[in-house]
């Protein structure tokens, strides 16, 4: 659990005061981390079907509160895990 938290924090960066997930989602380990965060998140709500990123449902990338950026995505709920 502690290792997961450390790995998660490595992928979260604060840019202009906003926390972004900056992993490479084409990278399996980074994508898996977005799933772990989504699974642990109390605020996760799946987005509308046309905005679904992955068949793996419970991932930040499929969440209604994720906001795509040019470095990855941010979270309207500020990654509450």
């Amino acid at each position: 659990m502690k290792k997961n938290k450390v790995d998660m924090l490595k992928r979260l960066k604060v840019i202009d005061g906003i926390t972004h997930f900056c992993g490479d989602l084409e990278n399996e380990a980074d994508f898996k981390m977005s799933c772990l965060i989504g699974q642990a998140c109390p605020s996760f709500i799946v987005d509308v079907e046309d905005e679904i990123y992955s068949e793996e449902e419970r991932t930040c990338t499929n969440c209604r509160f994720r906001r795509w950026t040019n470095t990855g995505f941010s979270c309207y709920k500020r990654f509450p895990v």
Binding site: D16, D47, D50, E51, R64, F65, R66, R67, W68, T69, N70, Y76
Partner: peptide, 18 residues
Amino acid sequence: TRHQLFVHSDIPYTSHNS
């Protein structure tokens, strides 16, 4: 149809800019 547009911090879209 859904059309993806440019994602950039200067654009105030809600979540995906389409």
